[in-house]
Design a protein around this nucleic acid. Structure first.
Lengths: 227, 227
DNA sequence: TATATTAGTTAACAATTTGATAACCTGACT
DNA sequence: AGTCAGGTTATCAAATTGTTAACTAATATA
């Protein structure tokens, strides 16, 4: 099964810091977003709903504390890890940051390796509970059965129920050919009888809506997901 | 609901450290056990199965790394938080500690307050979160189940009981599609039988009152909160 | 090449699902 | 008893979705 890359947002007003952290996190396989001030951090967070946010405390517009407090008031960021960074090595901010809902507090100068292993340690704790959904991601195509939402290149495509179920079935096992009978019994159920062309029509609608040929016909056999 | 005190084991060979940490943690309401070396730490851990273990790295008999590694190999300590302490401020041990399964790594000298808030931050993540009676805020929309009050852009909207419960249910997991059956069993209860159009009517009333389309219909499937 | 088979396309139609509205019921309060 | 608000139901309109049928295109087979 495909797993979504873990998304991390870095918010810092020093481009150097962003660059070095970003480099290491990207190399470690995370999907990285950046923001140069507090307001941008909130915007980016709302846009991408990252799994982890690295927040500098001293930033223009809105400081890290404010951003942290705001994020924690929003239900959608419940499970988002917040790591606070600061150059100030004082106890009071340390405690304040954690009390506002931060998950970790790291003093600058930061070692990227240490930061990375701290983030990994945090994820080790929370991932099992977050990652239990059945979302399928294949390249830019995301099929989320919990939200009944199909996203391609960030754009949402609204598929009807049967279309969605058909696409989901095929995408669960990319490359595997599903016989027409299998598709019928999985998507339509065993007792429903529909005509010969029904599947074709739905396949066509999916192809038309997504605009990408992700379903391949295997003549005489069936269809497979291939993207 | 039962409230067993949270158990914390402190292992350090310096009695002063033990005493000061112990004092603060006890004051904070934790049940504290202590050990003066690595072997004793393991014995005590097996005896009490603490929720959190604070491990000094430099200890006689078995050092903190060894103890950490051992504990992590035992399934019964799966959920036990391990906080490593050290006077050595070097990057390599820091990373090693986390890689061996430590949850946090703190350099001495330690501020008891900081240590306490770090431990609290870790517990916040792993303790079962009580999801009841919690206010939901999504952008400008605030749904407060304690006051049964819905606020949008600072203005209060009075929803009837069923309307409120329905909105609250959906908003608890924004984006997730709730099947009609799920909604019925959550809001109406399993033994109540109501007609087909009941949910729709309530959804309509919510949409009308709030004036914002925060509930999306997923035809043939159900409804989701989407705002 | 002719023929058969299978899949693709389209439009029309059927079925399903939801939205809107009004009527009705119930219990609390006056 | 009367009023009122919340809740449910019934009905019909509107929208969406699913299926079929007829035709075309592509591919394989003899």
């Amino acid at each position: 099964m495909e797993t979504n890359p873990i998304k991390i947002l870095i918010a810092d007003d020093e481009p150097d810091i962003i660059e070095i952290i970003s480099f290491h996190l990207t190399k470690a396989g995370f999907e990285v977003y950046t923001a140069k001030d507090g307001s941008e951090a909130i915007e980016q967070a709302q846009l991408h709903i990252p799994d982890c946010i690295i927040l500098d405390i001293m930033m223009p517009k809105r400081n890290g504390f404010e951003v942290c407090e705001y994020l924690r008031s929003q239900k959608q960021f419940d499970k988002t890890l917040i790591v606070l960074l600061t150059a100030l090595n004082d106890e009071a901010s340390h405690i304040k940051g954690l009390e506002l809902g931060g998950d970790d507090f790291v003093n600058k100068p930061i070692s990227p390796k240490v930061l990375l292993s701290r983030i990994s340690a945090l994820f080790r704790r929370i991932l099992p509970s977050t990652n239990d959904n059945k979302t399928i991601q294949i390249r830019d195509l995301i099929i989320d059965p919990v939200q009944y939402k199909t996203t391609l290149n960030g754009e949402i495509y609204t598929l009807a129920k049967k279309e969605f179920e058909l696409l989901f079935l095929l995408a669960e096992q990319p490359g595997r050919v599903f016989l027409r009978n299998e598709i019928l019994s999985q998507v339509w159920g065993n007792d429903v009888i529909v005509g010969d062309r029904t599947i074709d029509v739905h396949v066509r609608k999916i192809r038309a809506k997504l605009g990408v040929d992700c379903i391949t016909t295997v003549k005489g056999v069936g269809y497979k997901f291939d993207y």
